[in-house]
Write a protein that binds this DNA or RNA. Structure first.
Ligand SMILES: [Mn+2]
Ligand SMILES: [Mn+2]
Ligand SMILES: [Zn+2]
Ligand SMILES: [Zn+2]
Lengths: 127, 127
DNA sequence: TTATTTATTGCGATTGTATTGCAATATTAC
DNA sequence: GTAATATTGCAATACAATCGCAATAAATAA
């Protein structure tokens, strides 16, 4: 793996993702960062995070990419392949602690899983 | 519902989707049709099919939309919410007869399900 | 059949997301 | 400090999908 360097952008993006705990788009991340960072740079940082296994990418039915921290501590570990929920009202995507299970013939080689449920989230449905 | 008219485009798109039995992108559909049909028109036809419940839309991790006929006959019925498999080699997407199951609190209102597995399909893994 | 209504189409323009080339900059190692 | 090179900013680019509008054609009435 290529050697990584510490930069303000990395720190800022990580902090935003860490605080929200949800999956965010590049646009949403940029808006949450106080310093001014170029769009392309944020994408490159996010893609590097994905390469390094720090972050995972979710593609929703809106065709957009969302990025979330990979949570691996014991307390609130998320299954490697979990469902995501995109709320149409508050426009957030959360990683659900619900594992994706499926039965498929051995001849299929599954390399990636992308599962997104869309609708109204818990918080928004209570209003 | 708005009244629909029969057009050569509708017929052509339906025939292509029916023959392949898989989920296809606008681009792939256009290439399979012998007559020349405008891109925007194909998209509009497909969107109308989706509105009418004849076709369902799948969004893959490549961010593209794929469209497949809704199969509802007894012989090879597909579950309303089923997995899809996108093969990176032959670049096709097939509707798997595997139902998507998940447990999620009642407060969540699920309106749509989009699940795509990516990798190497059965045919391609045998080569 | 012809006339009328309006759903559908073609075309170009447009939107929106994401990536890329390249020169400038900043971080790390020495 | 200097050298090596990972990272960034900027503008250009790629690409999927949609939209506005005038032209066309399918369905229906006359
Ligand atoms: Mn997740
Ligand atoms: Mn399907
Ligand atoms: Zn919500
Ligand atoms: Zn294949």
């Amino acid at each position: 793996m290529k050697k990584r360097r510490n930069t303000p952008t990395k720190e800022a993006v990580l902090e935003v993702l860490s605080k929200t705990g949800k999956a965010m788009s590049q646009d949403a991340i940029e808006q949450k960062i106080d310093i001014d960072i170029n769009r392309a740079t944020i994408y490159r940082v996010l893609n590097r995070f994905c390469d390094d296994g720090i972050v995972h990418r979710v593609v929703a039915e809106d065709g957009k990419q969302y990025f979330a921290l990979c949570v691996k501590c014991e307390d609130n570990k998320e299954p490697s392949h979990h469902f995501h929920f995109r709320c149409l009202r508050c426009e957030t995507i959360e990683c659900l602690p619900v594992e994706v299970n499926f039965t498929i013939p051995d001849e299929y080689l599954v390399e990636n899983v992308n599962c997104v449920l869309t609708g109204t989230c818990r918080d928004c449905s209570r209003i």
